Simulated scan of single mutants.
Amino acid sequence: MGIASGPSMLKTAEIYDSEGGNPLGMKLKVSTATVVSVEGAYFLNPYIGMGGRLKVATLPVTADIPTENLKNFDLDSDLQAGAPVNMFLLEGLESDHLGMLDIDLGVYFSYPLSRHFQIGSKLLMGCRRTANFSLNSLSRINPQIFDRQIVSEEAYKKFYKEDVDFYLQQEQISQAELLNSTFADEEFLRIRRSSTYKIGTGFSFTYRYKEDAALRLYCDYDFAAPRLTYELNNSWVNEDGTRQTHSYSRKTPMHNFTFGASIAFVF
């Protein structure tokens, strides 16, 4: 078991509020991951062996969006429809975790320093699979729709009243409570699961405290470049009112360093 640092950023294309409109300027940042792995090798002699590793990791992903871009994003195409202001103001995207599964095979090396201590390394090749991943958008009601100096009574009835009345009756809340409510739009951004080849290496230091058991400290490095498919549920809609899903693929290099400790059983 260990912790890992991953790519600092997942590169995505710009999301626009309309065809050629305002860019959201979103960047997906990856934090330290939690890693659980099972590893084993059969040594032909004290120095070289063959083995494999099964590793599962979860990468926390957060969306970084400039504040000045959030206020310009036409989340429900209100401005495009002719409304004076947006009914919903985009506040950001919810964080989530990207799951990964690595399956590796390769060569293991060991060099005994003494009866109890030894150092080791390895060279692995294998497959990385990433799970489906999605981010939800978070938004609030724009208080300007209730300001009659900005939105006339006629414009309010035409563009906003029906939706406002629905939320007030559905949730049984006041106008003030409505303005403090947060709305989540599911799967604003979705990344499809993927599979790709990968390589890995590592260095370990082992203390053999019993004849058949040892404590191992290790540092592993893995590299993969999966072609991730991003599906963006953008704000603009077709003529029939259906929201479009824009899809594109991009190779995303992933450099992962894992630091951890484990108990090794020696047979």
Rank of each mutant, 00 (worst) to 15 (best):
A264N: 10
F257I: 10
L124K: 06
P23F: 00
A224N: 09
M9K: 14
N142D: 12
E171A: 10
T62P: 01
K158T: 14
H255M: 09
M50H: 05
Y16C: 06
G20D: 03
F43L: 12
R148K: 08
A13R: 13
L79R: 11
E171L: 15
N72Q: 12
F259M: 13
E39K: 02
K27V: 06
G2C: 10
D78G: 07
T67P: 01
F265L: 14
I15P: 09
K55A: 15
Y248C: 05
K210Y: 10
I191W: 07
L215V: 04
L179W: 00
T245H: 04
P143Y: 09
D102H: 11
G51H: 06
Y221K: 02
D74E: 04
T12G: 14
N136V: 05
F257G: 05
R128C: 11
E68D: 15
N72K: 15
A131Y: 08
N132R: 08
S174D: 01
Y209F: 15
L28H: 04
S247I: 15
L135N: 08
S204Y: 07
D222S: 15
E186C: 00
V38C: 07
H97Y: 13
G92H: 04
K55G: 13
P23I: 02
D64W: 03
M87H: 03
R250S: 06
D220C: 00
L101A: 11
R190W: 09
S137P: 05
S121L: 01
S8Q: 08
F88N: 12
N132K: 13
D96Q: 13
Q244G: 07
E162L: 10
H97C: 09
Q118W: 07
E91Y: 11
S31W: 01
F166I: 09
G20C: 05
L228E: 01
N180P: 02
E91C: 02
E91N: 15
D163A: 14
G6C: 09
W236N: 05
F159K: 03
T206E: 07
M125C: 11
R148D: 07
K29N: 12
P23D: 11
G82K: 05
F205H: 02
S37I: 00
M254D: 14
N256S: 14
F259N: 03
P112K: 01
V61A: 05
A57P: 03
S247T: 15
A81P: 02
L228G: 06
G2N: 10
E19Y: 14
R190T: 15
Y207E: 02
V30G: 14
E91R: 15
A57N: 06
V38K: 05
A57Y: 03
V38H: 05
S18L: 06
Y16T: 10
D212N: 15
L135G: 01
V237P: 03
N69Q: 08
F166E: 08
Q80N: 08
F109V: 09
R115V: 10
